[in-house]
Design a protein around this nucleic acid. Structure first.
Lengths: 220, 220
DNA sequence: AGACAAAAATACAGTAACTGCATCGAAATC
DNA sequence: GATTTCGATGCAGTTACTGTATTTTTGTCT
């Protein structure tokens, strides 16, 4: 108690302000999911969530910007700088796999709250529109992801001079990653999958390979 | 010409009621696109559209159900029975290509109004959120499309007994088709593509094949 | 500890999308 | 021509979301 928190090394808190902020956000998300599980997503209003979490409606929108956001979790998945670098300088030839892995990591290191995740999963399972919403949120990252892939191509020495449609290829990689994520999330949230997320992604990637690989060039 | 429209083979009209209906729908769609091109999508309200098209706001929602609908075109793309059958009984090995082709057809035979299509394309080009919206509309068909693919598999003699995860495969085909459509639409609406839609689809499919094919099983 | 700056919570008023319901008028059916 | 059917409309209400000004809380500096 002598030194006034010089620079907490392993400290999980960054000041009381941030802690309170995290608390209210968490409270709102929990309230949202709980209410939706009880009454159904459509029958839950923002006001109800605010009352349960004891904050003003205006504050709600300061946090999430949209009603849906409270149910899906505050901030859309964004890769950290570390993940960014790891991907760009990855050496494997499996660009798609690495990209999917990065997105999955970004989604995972999001909220370590196991219980909330479980309840959220139940909710999404019975509320397909939320699945669509999450898909859209990921889609908003596309532009950024395309840049990442191009960066990685550059690091690997692939240039537009050698491959004229490199930008197209990057865009397609991102688009395919979207497919894999969508497929995986769908399978994950529909409950039919028993296993770890990592296994699920491998399963999905293998399936992509099989399906896309069986494309014959139309001409027999 | 003698019989009073017994069953018009090529007849374009199905009574005055239907014609009027089509007229107002068209008027609303035109007004919506025009206003958005002039003022920007966000700055156009439903009331403005209604005033321009001279219908009540209530009627607007009777037609489209959502504001976005007026800009994207009344009814979401749905394959006709003919297209349905053609796909299910297709003999080619390229399930993905055929599926994409069917969706494209469904979107094409939608509105033969070239001018409106051109203006809509301009609008979407400068309004990415609409692109996302159209993507979501297609996503709503997914369940249906999965059934179609499974039907086709059945016709081709592929059964769950032989391929345990046939349903998974079907789902992935649909998911990949989504990717191709998304990629194609993106490229189409971004204006960078000079060619017919059919060529674009071939380009996209080839790219999928190249990208997905280059997936090495991670282990080197 | 007390003054002061920064940030967050709130109140308030307003816009705009969307819905249910009852009514009215035109079109199809007989 | 009478009836039934269907689309258009008016109206009142709910709900998501925003801008702005005000108040409360928290961090900081002396």
């Amino acid at each position: 108690m002598s030194s006034p928190v010089p620079d907490g090394p392993a400290g999980a808190d960054e000041g009381l302000r941030a802690r309170k902020r995290a608390a209210t956000q968490s409270a709102l998300e929990r309230a949202a999911v709980s209410l939706a599980l009880e009454h159904g997503y459509d029958n839950v209003t923002v006001d109800m969530i605010c009352e349960a979490a004891m904050v003003s409606p205006r504050t709600f929108f300061n946090y999430f910007g949209t009603k849906e956001g409270a149910f899906l979790g505050g901030t859309p998945p964004a890769p950290t700088d570390a993940e960014h670098q790891a991907f760009v300088h990855g050496t494997s030839r499996d660009v798609l796999g690495d990209l999917v892995g990065m997105i999955a990591d970004a989604m995972a290191d999001h909220s370590p709250d196991t219980d909330l995740l479980r309840r959220r999963r139940m909710l999404i399972e019975r509320t397909p529109e939320l699945l669509t919403g999450e898909t859209s949120r990921i889609a908003e990252l596309e532009e950024h992801l395309v840049k990442l892939v191009l960066e990685r191509f550059a690091v690997q020495g692939r240039t537009e001079a050698r491959t004229p449609d490199l930008a197209d290829e990057a865009r397609m990689v991102v688009s395919l990653a979207g497919s894999v994520m969508r497929y995986s999330m769908q399978k994950w949230f529909s409950g039919g999958f028993t296993g770890t997320p990592v296994e699920l992604l491998h399963h999905s990637l293998a399936l992509v390979r099989r399906v896309a690989g069986s494309i014959a060039p139309a001409a027999r």
